[in-house]
Design a binder for these strands. Sequence first.
RNA 1: GCUACAAGCCGGGCUAUCGUUCCGACGUUACAGUCGGGAAGGAAAGUCCGGACAGCACAGAGCAAUGCACCGGUGAAUAGCCGGGUCUUUUCUUACUUAGGCAGGAAAAGAACAGAUAGUGCCACAGAAAAUAACUAUCCGCCUGCGGGUGGACAAAGGUGAAAACGUAGGGUAAGAGCCUACGGCUUAUGAUGGUAACAUCAUUUGCGGGUAAACCUUGCAUGCUGAAAUGCCACGUAUAGUACCGUUUUGAGGGCUGCUCGUCCAAGGUACAGGGUAGGCAGAUUGAUCCCGCGGGGUAACUUGCGGGACAGAUAAAUGAUAGUCCACGACAGGAUCCGGCUUACAGGCUUGUAGCAAUU
RNA 2: CGGGUGGUGGCGCAGCCCGGUAGCGCACUUGCAUGGGGUGCAAGGGGUCGCUGGUUCGAAUCCAGUCCACCCGA
Length: 129
Amino acid sequence: MARQFTLGKKERLKSRKSIEQLFNEGKKINLVPYRIFYTLSPLADERVLLFGVGVSAKNFKRAVDRNRIKRLIREAYRLQKLSLLDKLKDGNLQLNVFFIYTGKELPEYKDVYQKIGMVLNKMEKIVSG
RNA sequence: GCUACAAGCCGGGCUAUCGUUCCGACGUUACAGUCGGGAAGGAAAGUCCGGACAGCACAGAGCAAUGCACCGGUGAAUAGCCGGGUCUUUUCUUACUUAGGCAGGAAAAGAACAGAUAGUGCCACAGAAAAUAACUAUCCGCCUGCGGGUGGACAAAGGUGAAAACGUAGGGUAAGAGCCUACGGCUUAUGAUGGUAACAUCAUUUGCGGGUAAACCUUGCAUGCUGAAAUGCCACGUAUAGUACCGUUUUGAGGGCUGCUCGUCCAAGGUACAGGGUAGGCAGAUUGAUCCCGCGGGGUAACUUGCGGGACAGAUAAAUGAUAGUCCACGACAGGAUCCGGCUUACAGGCUUGUAGCAAUU
RNA sequence: CGGGUGGUGGCGCAGCCCGGUAGCGCACUUGCAUGGGGUGCAAGGGGUCGCUGGUUCGAAUCCAGUCCACCCGA
């Protein structure tokens, strides 16, 4: 039985090329302190859902703060991605997502969890039709 | 015990659930999965110095540029560190002095402490003048209408200023002036003594011509250039690919000698524009001038050395987190990105040791 | 990772190389001109020269350290 709440190397965007493609060709969602890029395409291999995070060094000068925001977003995503994954499997689709934090204040985990949940719900609706 | 200062060390702990990365074992065709172990700092930061390492270059000469600048030691090396010298400032103290002051000694702090008689520049305001002179004053000669004018001599007396032409006394002179003499101060050179040396003391001697080199500069010494996006290898892929210009025996386009010039060597392709492809993997790359502990040796110290034991991340869109509970002193500054040595800056709180003061007990 | 530029009145800039008076435009205040406004004319106020030290008689300017903002290479 495979574990469910994982976020290993195989589930993250690892290629510079695919990331650049995502920024150039992907669609965009703005949700107050976040900006999400995504591309939806027919399933090519077993990698159904790929994920990435970014925080601008302009808004957060210290690496400690950037690391913390990325960790919080990753955690919220990890715990809430399951139903989106099921929808993608049903539709035989492949999705790349990239989260960018555009706010200027350090967020609380509860807010991050809530907002990421909203984003994922939106994505589900887009995937469904 | 409390307070202050200095030095050194630490800088949240525990439990549960979910999760990340690397290594090993099991397992698998290969994944998946399971088990065990490792996983940010004292500054990882700023990138201010110095190296290691790598590539290119390494026949020579000249010029330039940059850095450093008392001496010795330390170390792979430095603008770091340690010790010493000199100077400056502050404090204390002693002798002399009516006082002002001045000389010596001690302690602490600081010093970008080579050169201002190599040259050039600058020094606002004030002041006669900011370094060459001129002006006032002084003295001498001549003229005079007795107000002064004019030709010379003189060199620091002239309310200033941050800074004023060695100080005091005497001689000297037409009047003056280190012009001369004595004492004192600073300074140049030589010698002697002590010291590895910087330097100190003494003797003789040269002069006394302000400051500024964190102004240009001069002198001495050092430095090849470029940095892991360096560099080597493998894989994938495109256009046996276009246009223009220059050149291909000699008249040679261009290139190397990596700052430039000379000089020298190579040389058949080169330059520009337009367009196309790739942007994956492995090595570099984590164990090294390494760090810590104990005992011992050398050295004033920085540091070094012998023996024994222990420890040491390696990611690559980039890993240490989240949630809940609990304890306390309620958690600061802040996160690797080739590595190491230093410097600088940020930092809640706590612990240890030493010194000084206060209080109390025996 | 490497390299560079800039912090001067409320705003945009000059002065810095070669040290001695901080200046310009817009804005602001007051007055005059107009029936009123725009506009024009005249006068005026306002600056720790990012911060901390050093050199110097004297620092916005020179030097060192530090903070902040911005840009470039890949």
